[in-house]
Design a binder for these strands. Structure first.
Length: 190
DNA sequence: AGAGCGATGGCCT
DNA sequence: GGCCATCGCTCTA
């Protein structure tokens, strides 16, 4: 389904996305996990891919809320975002960590890793575990391959600065479920 | 046409 | 905590 709060600006929508279940449907099977860590990016944000304007790569960020934006980085990792806000605003939420729910065996096979704790505790890891790649960029949550379903309501949410960026490093636009063991890092930096 | 640069993860100490 | 593989995208010329 398409939660109404995705129409809001990224920073407002971000904490509301925590606890929702992200579901991936591929030929290999269904995999899913609760979203436990997200970061907000917007067009006015130097750390955002949309900051420099619309390019072929970043075009999905400027489409309607619920659009999927997948990018490839460091020559080996895919990261997935969900677009928020009005059309043309270039806002998105980077999904940084999931708590595995369905299809854990398939996720372990895709990751070539048994340890469930390390299956989806990072943006590149969860993309690999769910079988997400660039082909999904530009598709929409209502297209059926990647979708959202209600999950749980987080008891407490922690807000910190974002991870792995070199610009706008002081903006507290990272949100995670307090105490959840699948969050990539409890501390903001380091 | 080519250089520079990452919204990372895994391995090592 | 530190290092670095690896390649698509953007910018400059």
């Amino acid at each position: 389904m398409l939660p109404a709060f995705l129409e809001q600006d990224a920073v407002e929508a971000a904490p509301q996305l925590l606890g929702w279940k992200l579901v991936s449907r591929t030929a290999a099977g269904i995999t899913s996990g609760y979203i436990v860590e997200v970061e907000a990016y917007s067009m006015e944000d130097p750390a955002s891919h949309s900051f420099r304007g619309l390019t072929p790569r970043t075009a999905p960020m400027f489409k309607r809320a619920g659009t999927i934006y997948v990018y490839f980085t460091y020559g080996m990792h895919y990261c997935m975002n969900i677009v928020t806000g009005p059309v043309g605003h270039g806002q998105a939420l980077l999904i940084r960590a999931l708590e595995p729910v369905d299809g854990i065996g398939l996720m372990q096979a895709r990751r070539d890793l048994e340890n469930v704790n390390q299956l989806t505790n990072g943006p590149g890891k969860l993309a690999q575990a769910l079988g997400i790649d660039k082909a999904l960029s530009g598709s929409h949550l209502t297209d059926g391959k990647l979708s959202l379903e209600p999950g749980f309501r987080p008891a407490d949410i922690t807000q910190t600065t974002r991870i792995g960026i070199t610009k706008a490093i002081d903006q507290p636009w990272r949100f995670f479920v307090t105490g959840n063991q699948f969050v990539s890092r409890q501390a903001a930096r380091g």
